[in-house]
Design a protein around this nucleic acid. Structure first.
Lengths: 160, 160
DNA sequence: CTTGATATGTTATAGTATTACATTTATCAA
DNA sequence: TTGATAAATGTAATACTATAACATATCAAG
């Protein structure tokens, strides 16, 4: 699995593919991929950074789709519930999933300089955390794993 | 390093030792361990679960120490800035550090049933996450690592 | 076509956190 | 000891994040 978000890539395809994958999944599974849900996903897919619910709501409002908080939160709830988007707890913000379809235990790399967020993978039951949990008798069901630091682009800019 | 929080232990000592350790550290480093800061730390130390800022503020209010949000947030800011307490991002809540003095990369095990929180250790630069970060050219400076699941006590209760 | 489930519109409110500024207290050098 | 500076506190106001509640509309299955 690749870490997606920092390197150059075909961003239009990124949006189109993401939307298409979700549309297909919804069709297969009898989920309603409504206008609002689709639009919120597109808004998230447009950026590789996390957007606050109210930022998203502003966009929806401009476009004449809903103007009240629940509109944004409901769409985000749908998207996160099905793994099409993720909440970044550290930022109280949301980002489109970049590993659609893969059954994932997502982890995030957050650049403190440019706010880019890349999604990667980190199984919580592996490594030190998994060992500590087993030793304590704790059963991990999910995990928030969000690393903060400098992305490769911002490191270069600082001659680091 | 032990994972502290689920198993039985001498909780009074837990509070006394924690407060003493912080007091000593502050004395050594010219930090002001004021009444409010001490009291907030004590409040946190009384429980091995995360408390919201307003829960803490309620306690302070009852005791006649401050009643406005900044009172709680300032004390929490001091405590977290110096590693005496940690914020649990998933819960928007705070918990006293149980590994005072140890230079740590804290990770947390959060029980979804009883809300107990145990602090453990997980170096973010190790394991899959560290490898993914290195491959992406990302430099990790800190990480939020919060596992959710069932603590040993709650697992037993559910005959799991 | 109707019934039950799902989604949307909207108002109100709850919960979390910060800004701003006045005042007080602590620290330290003269 | 005093005066200057920095740090901490008191307090009001406000910003940001999220959910509850309920009416209406739309969809999906029989």
């Amino acid at each position: 699995m690749d870490t997606i978000g920092f390197e150059h890539h075909d961003h239009d395809a990124c949006i189109d593919d993401g939307t298409a994958a979700v549309a297909a999944y919804c069709a297969r599974n009898g989920l309603q991929f409504t206008r609002q849900r689709r639009r919120v996903l597109e808004i998230l897919l447009e950026e590789h950074r996390a957007l606050g619910a109210y930022e998203i709501l502003d966009r929806l409002r401009e476009e004449g789709l809903g103007s009240q908080p629940p509109v944004a939160y409901r769409a985000l709830d749908f998207l996160t519930r099905h793994g099409f988007a993720h909440k970044i707890e550290r930022l109280n913000a949301f980002i489109a999933c970049t590993h659609m379809g893969e059954n994932h235990a997502p982890a995030f790399l957050i650049c403190r300089a440019c706010s880019a967020v890349a999604e990667t993978y980190a199984d919580p039951s592996e490594g030190v955390l998994g060992r500590a949990a087993r030793e304590a008798g704790f059963r991990i069901e999910r995990a928030v794993i969000e690393a903060e630091g400098l992305c490769p682009n911002c490191r270069k800019e600082r001659a680091g």
